[in-house]
Design a protein around this nucleic acid. Structure first.
Lengths: 139, 139
DNA sequence: ACACTCTATAACTAGGGAGTTGTATTGATT
DNA sequence: AATCAATACAACTCCCTAGTTATAGAGTGT
């Protein structure tokens, strides 16, 4: 299922067929697809919720179910997707299965997005305030 | 359509109802939803391709269509989604409409993901090499 | 006015994925 | 061995969305 060798080749070709002044503007479709798929894994609030719940240490599935309020089968599917994406790792201990964050850089990603969103909202509210002010001046 | 005021309230409540040792583990559902929606915008390779094409400066729609090979209506829809997410900005010049990256931090996001994926692949190939080596020793 | 180009939008189809329900599997307990 | 609890998986439904086709609108030159 995973096209690892192809990816490596594609990644090598990224440097090769560069016509623009910037290499990143001529990314191979396969590499873009990989990045997009990674973002897709993080693009569901349920999965994001699970990831956040694992922020301060490993948790087993039952704990995740209880913390998130999601259905058992649903959580199981999401954890599989997160594990396949390399975002979490799986470790069985007896009858329980513990999941934990594989690479904490996902929190860097989330923080970057949060900052950007906060900035956007701040700008919007500033514009709103300016509009309100203008509305008063013409009254 | 945009739930800006609610978001602000939710964001304020994030700090409030914190029971864990880490605030981020008790994120409000609304905030998570916003972050997830942002990731969703970047989770389509066509949109990611458009973003990458805009890396070295603004481009009008026709140029984007030509560079990406996507259909005209399709590109128009994607650009609308990107603009609504605040990833690109729109500027009309006569009959042409130029789009450009609103906040270059999206490239930081992509780079972080790329690095992580490259690291994963590297580990996988290392494991593959170890397996091949082992296979030879038992032959 | 007319024709032409560029961009946006509406309507439609097909495919994918989230959530649910039911079931299977695996480890622990008695 | 039997039972119970924890987790995974299969099958199903419903909704969302990417892409396409056709059309509309807006700016430009003749």
């Amino acid at each position: 299922m995973v096209t690892t060798p192809q990816v490596m080749n594609q990644h090598a070709s990224v440097v090769g067929d560069c016509e623009d002044d910037c290499m990143l503007s001529k990314l191979s479709p396969a590499a873009l697809q990989l990045v997009a798929e990674f973002f897709k894994v993080l693009s569901e609030s349920s999965r994001l919720q699970i990831v956040c719940r694992l922020r301060n240490g490993p948790k087993n599935v039952s704990e995740i179910i209880e913390l998130t309020g999601l259905g058992q089968a649903n959580v199981s599917k999401h954890l599989k997707i997160l594990a396949q994406a390399g975002i979490v790792t799986r470790e069985q201990q007896g009858v329980c299965v513990f999941y934990q964050i594989a690479n904490p850089f996902v929190f860097d990603l989330c923080e970057l997005v949060c900052n950007s969103l906060a900035q956007q909202i701040q700008q919007q509210t500033a514009q709103q305030a300016a509009l309100d002010e203008f509305r008063q001046t013409i009254r």
